[in-house]
């Protein structure tokens, strides 16, 4: 009555082999089998811990799965009658002890390793040479990230940071907003941006470059579009950018206005205000400063299902002026 076992075993072994082959191919470029190439000491600490756990876990995995395969092949019924009993063994205290102690030792080793790595992951190194860490405030909004530098410069979605210098991030979300989570995979782990709560994390990018990231906590319809990134510049270039932005942002700054439009408004209303999730915006609306301020500050509850969050309740006057300036230059001539 029992059908032969071999074809099915072959199938399973074949699939496992195929998976291994796939794994091998993908592993050639890491391929997602470990954290993406870390570029900051904390991300390196996490990646090292990951590989340490992997080494132990892989051993247990191979042990259990190979025992399973061997037992199934070796002890399958073959020609024995169905009711032929195996040896009536009820247990073994010595074995129970062994497979309690074994995992305890492995977990102990993991805990010790992780705790040893922990200071390097959570403590930002001192940077006396470059004048201490740079502190940036990171505020998650539906559906954009706002960054504020110590001198008041504001940036949207794209953070700029100097290479080689620790950057400490104060991460939060406004009281009227929802939870978000700040995550740049190559620059360390994630930390939630929670309304009413200030969290801190840090990174020190070794090399200039662009490091992508995204919001990692469901925050609404455009969660998937809450992309962000850190552009790491050589210290001199960074300083130059920061001073330029500082003087520009004292009054209406079309460059900041453009960032605001693209990061805050266009995700729902379209780059050309053609509408999308949010309604089409007429040029007359976009250039009516008072009406615009009301909507930006308070949001709008539309009948039906869409609600516009109060995206700019905490914006400075200069921010609003920058947006007006950009909008008037971009849409004013048409109206």
């Amino acid at each position: 009555m029992t059908p032969p076992v071999r074809p099915r075993l072959l199938l399973i072994i074949g699939v496992l082999a195929a998976l291994l082959a796939l794994a091998g191919a993908a592993a050639a470029g890491n391929g997602g089998f470990g954290p993406t190439s870390p570029a900051s000491p904390n991300a390196e600490g996490i990646a090292t811990s990951f590989w340490f756990v992997t080494a132990l876990v892989l051993g247990v995995f191979l042990l259990v799965e190979s025992l399973l395969v061997v037992f199934v092949v070796r002890f399958r019924r073959r020609k024995r009658p169905r009711d032929a009993d195996g040896p009536q063994i009820h247990g073994s205290n010595r074995l129970e002890l062994a497979w309690t102690a074994g995992p305890v030792l492995i977990l102990f080793a993991i805990a010790v390793f992780v705790f040893a790595k922990l200071p390097g992951i959570i403590d930002s190194p001192d940077a006396t040479a470059s004048g201490g860490p740079l502190r940036i405030e990171v505020v998650g909004h539906q559906f954009y990230w706002q960054f504020r530098y110590p001198n008041g410069v504001i940036a949207i979605d794209r953070m700029r940071a100097p290479a080689g210098r620790p950057v400490v991030l104060d991460v939060t979300a406004p009281d009227w907003d929802v939870n978000h989570s700040w995550w740049i995979p190559r620059l360390g782990g994630k930390i939630d941006a929670i309304p009413g709560r200030m969290n801190t994390t840090w990174f020190r990018a070794n090399e200039p470059g662009f490091y992508e990231g995204r919001c990692a906590e469901l925050c609404g319809a455009f969660h998937a579009k809450m992309l962000t990134g850190v552009e790491v510049l050589p210290q001199a270039d960074f300083d130059e950018w920061l001073t330029t932005a500082f003087s520009a942002q004292h009054q209406a700054d079309p460059a900041l206005g453009r960032e605001l439009w693209e990061g805050v408004c266009a995700k729902c209303h379209g780059l050309a205000a053609e509408g999308g999730y949010g309604p089409t915006l007429a040029a007359a609306t976009l250039t009516n400063r008072d009406a615009l301020e009301t909507v930006i500050r308070n949001g709008r509850a539309l009948p039906g299902r869409n609600v516009m969050p109060s995206v700019g309740r905490d914006w400075t006057a200069a921010q609003l002026q920058s947006l007006y300036a950009y909008l008037e230059a971009e849409f004013g001539s048409q109206g």
């Binding site: 029992t2 076992v5 199934v72 399958r76 019924r77 024995r80 195996g86 247990g91 074995l95 309690t100």
Partner: peptide, 21 residues
């Protein structure tokens, strides 16, 4: 730890059995 215990006990249940697949 107790979870691992279960897995190893199950494996040991298979050991030297008469497995009807």
């Amino acid at each position: 730890v107790p979870t691992g215990m279960k897995i190893f006990n199950w494996l040991a249940t298979l050991w030297r059995g008469n497995l009807s697949l």
